[in-house]
Amino acid sequence: MKKMITVLFLALGLSTFAQERGEGRKDLSSEEMATLSAKRLAMQLDLNEDQEMKLKALYMTKMDAREEGREENAEKRAEMMEKRDAMKEKREEMREKRKADSEEMKADLQKILTADQFQKWEQLQEKRRKGRRSGNGTIRN
């Protein structure tokens, strides 16, 4: 039991530490991030100043391209949401039209059929609806 509690606290501490570590980077500009990354790699690989400057330029180029990609993605996402909303509206209009057509058909049939025939027709329609809902894939006429 003590080991489980220790593991739980350790996991909680690590997750908190990982979250705090990532938050500090959000405050840095792209240039500062590129400089830090270049300096870190320069220290690890023992690079000269020329290599470090080229590495910083490379990081800046990649960060700018990534930022442009984010902006494009945001625009595309907004465009897709607009299209999705338009499709929802169109679907709803189509559903309402089908419902109105169905009600009109029902009223016309009621004028043509006798009361018993109409009642039988309604029962057949209900049976059909239940058959579709059951998911067996067969629709009987």
Rank of each mutant, 00 (worst) to 15 (best):
M4V: 15
T6V: 11
T6A: 14
L8N: 06
F9L: 10
L14G: 03
S15T: 14
T16C: 12
T16W: 12
T16K: 10
T16Y: 13
F17L: 15
A18G: 06
Q19D: 12
R21Y: 14
R21E: 13
G22C: 09
L28E: 14
S29K: 07
S30F: 08
E31S: 13
E31G: 04
E32V: 04
M33P: 00
L36W: 07
L36P: 01
A38I: 01
K39E: 11
R40K: 14
R40H: 13
A42I: 01
M43W: 07
M43E: 15
Q44W: 04
D46S: 14
D50F: 07
L55H: 03
K56W: 01
A57H: 05
A57E: 15
A57Y: 03
Y59T: 02
T61F: 05
K62W: 07
K62G: 04
M63Q: 04
M63F: 15
A65L: 07
A65I: 08
R70Q: 10
E72T: 03
N73E: 05
A74F: 02
A74N: 05
E75N: 07
M81T: 09
M81A: 14
M81K: 15
E82T: 12
E82H: 06
E82V: 13
K83W: 08
R84H: 06
D85N: 13
A86P: 02
A86D: 15
A86W: 06
M87S: 08
M87F: 12
M87T: 05
K90W: 02
K90F: 04
R91S: 07
R91K: 13
R91L: 12
E93K: 08
M94T: 06
M94A: 10
R95A: 11
R98T: 07
K99M: 14
A100P: 00
S102T: 04
E103S: 07
M105Y: 08
M105W: 13
M105R: 14
A107E: 15
A107K: 13
L109K: 04
L109M: 15
Q110N: 11
Q110C: 00
Q110F: 03
K111W: 01
L113N: 01
D116S: 12
K120E: 13
K120L: 07
K120Y: 05
W121D: 04
E122H: 02
E122S: 09
Q123K: 12
Q125I: 09
K127S: 01
K127Y: 02
K127N: 07
R128T: 05
K130C: 01
G131T: 03
S134N: 10
S134K: 11
G135Q: 00
G135S: 06
N141R: 14
